[in-house]
Nucleic acid binder design. Structure first.
Length: 462
RNA sequence: GAGACCGUGGCAGAGAGGAAAUGCUGCAGCCUGCAAAGCUGUGAUGCGUCGGUUCGAAUCCGACCGGUCUCUCCA
């Protein structure tokens, strides 16, 4: 039985899809005005694992993740750069796709863009206007009237009257109520915008996701996900708009991934601990970063630090050291393995990746024990472990590649191989002094030699 | 101020009424020419503190202490 934590009820619930065997899931994607940062990566990887697992479990998944490609931040960036906003978004969408590929994040089934759904957005606002749940302000902005949706706050557990205290009242307020939020924002005639019944303008952020999710998945669908910081107001507003417009339940379950922190502090540009994915990947292997992002449960905060990266390096080295001397290609597929069952049981429990890792480490121990006792079984278990690792998007490299890649750029592999050959000869001559000398020489190059019965192998000291 | 969440061995991190997973680290042993890797053993009589419920609590309830997040466009 698959159990998922539902942010709406704040508890784990049995997952019952609307249609047996199928899952419809919408996740709030990025606003593309800059490079993907580690916080984004956390969200992308979290839902990538969730979708991979749902598929591995046999569900037919329809995974939608949008792109917000028109927004104040984008327009500001375009103005700063003195370029057309569409060039800004195209560039950062391309960069985002690059970073996703590096981190083994599979593309969603659809990646709708706000600018390609203006008609649906306008149509949804029209429905709200017709129902008198929204109103046009004098300047052409259109606002949603929060008071008319009594369930407002059901996701973030906020009370309507308490929200009034904290609501920011701006000078020259156009809203009838400070809690109301924009569905449509008027644009200057020479600015970016589209014609609408309320005048020239562009969509508000919240309505984009309501319109795109409904367009792709229907009024009512299984799962809506995103970062926990989007719960209020973004997701709250989505629920209000959608349920008010359709008079049907919106997403049945809400899933929120936890935040990423850096050295125990919130990641921010002002603190100087802000990392983009591409910066991090210059210094660390993408698989290591991915491991770090799923070594904690998706709802827990993750702390990104030098130390946590080191732990992920060690963890992956353990896996790949184990796989290194197996031959998997001709191994039979193990069926009904207790490890596979335990892995699925862990993931069935709200995608408990740390528990699932526990199972994989148990497999490593068992494989290492069986290498001598029952090599066939070791190979079979190894093959299964690679398959299970694949559900997490890990362990798909060849062991020697993982263990040997990521050294300094000037590492001369031919020289390493040559030194190892020389050392082999020295060892055959029982010239331990010479062998140790060569080993020290390799160590200076950040290369670790490991002697085994079949010959010596090497890996990078990370 | 309001709301939500969290506090588990040296570190990381599961467990959510009935033997405290797992990884790293430490120590001991085996293996090895020596290492590395691997294997075996060892490590919280205890799960922030104090009470309560229960035959039984890390798990439920209450208070307190400490920490984090959210509060109108941040994943």
């Amino acid at each position: 039985m698959l159990v998922i934590h539902n942010s709406l009820t704040q508890r784990k619930e049995e997952f019952r899809p609307l249609e047996a065997g199928k899952v419809s899931i919408y996740v709030c994607g990025l606003t593309v005005y800059d490079y993907v940062h580690l916080g984004h990566a956390r969200m992308l990887v979290a839902f990538d694992v969730i979708v991979r697992y749902l598929r591995a479990r046999g569900f037919e998944v329809n995974y939608i993740r949008n792109i917000t490609d028109v927004d104040d931040k984008i327009l500001n960036r375009a103005t700063e750069n003195e370029e057309w906003y569409g060039d800004v978004t195209e560039r950062f969408i391309a960069a985002m796709h690059e970073d996703e590929r590096a981190l083994a994040i599979l593309p969603p089934d659809q990646e709708p863009r706000a600018t390609e759904h203006i008609d649906e957005i306008v149509a949804m606002i029209e429905v709200l206007m017709d129902k008198d749940l929204a109103y046009r302000a004098d300047n052409g902005d259109v606002y949603f009237s929060v008071m008319q949706y009594p369930d407002y706050g059901k996701l973030s557990k906020k009370k309507l009257d308490e929200l009034l205290d904290g609501a920011r009242v701006e000078v020259g307020e156009l809203k009838r109520d400070p809690r109301d939020f924009a569905l449509w924002k008027a644009s200057p005639d020479d600015g970016v915008g589209w014609d609408s019944p309320w005048g020239y303008g562009r969509p508000g952020w919240h309505i984009e996701c309501s319109a795109m999710s409904t367009c792709a998945l229907g009024d009512n669908f299984d799962i809506h996900g995103g970062g926990s910081d989007l719960m209020f107001p973004h997701h709250e507003n989505e629920i209000a708009q959608s349920e008010a417009a359709t008079e049907k339940p919106f997403a049945n379950m809400w899933m929120h991934n936890g935040p990423l922190r850096v050295d125990d502090e919130k990641m921010s540009k002002s603190l100087g601990n802000f990392f983009t994915v591409r910066e991090v990947l210059q210094n660390y292997d993408a698989e290591v970063v991915r491991h770090l992002l799923i070594a904690s449960h998706y709802r827990s905060p993750i702390n990104y630090s030098e130390q946590s990266l080191k732990q992920s390096i060690k963890a992956l080295e353990r896996f790949y050291q184990c796989l290194k001397d197996l031959s998997l290609s001709d191994a039979k597929w193990l069926t009904n393995s207790r490890f596979e069952k335990a892995f699925f049981a862990a993931m069935d429990d709200d995608f408990n990746t740390p528990k699932a890792f526990g199972v994989l480490y148990d497999m490593v121990s068992e494989i290492n024990r069986q290498k001598a006792a029952n090599p066939d079984l070791a190979n079979q278990l190894g093959r299964l472990m690679v398959k299970l690792g694949g559900i997490l998007g890990l362990l798909q490299s060849s062991p020697s590649d993982f263990l040997q890649r990521g050294g300094s750029a000037e590492l001369d592999v031919a020289k390493v191989e040559d030194l190892i050959a020389q050392r082999e000869r020295a060892r055959q001559d029982r010239d331990w002094h010479r062998a140790d000398e060569i080993r020290a020489q390799l160590a200076a190059m950040k290369v670790v030699v490991e002697d085994a019965v079949g010959g010596s192998s090497w890996r990078i000291e990370r």
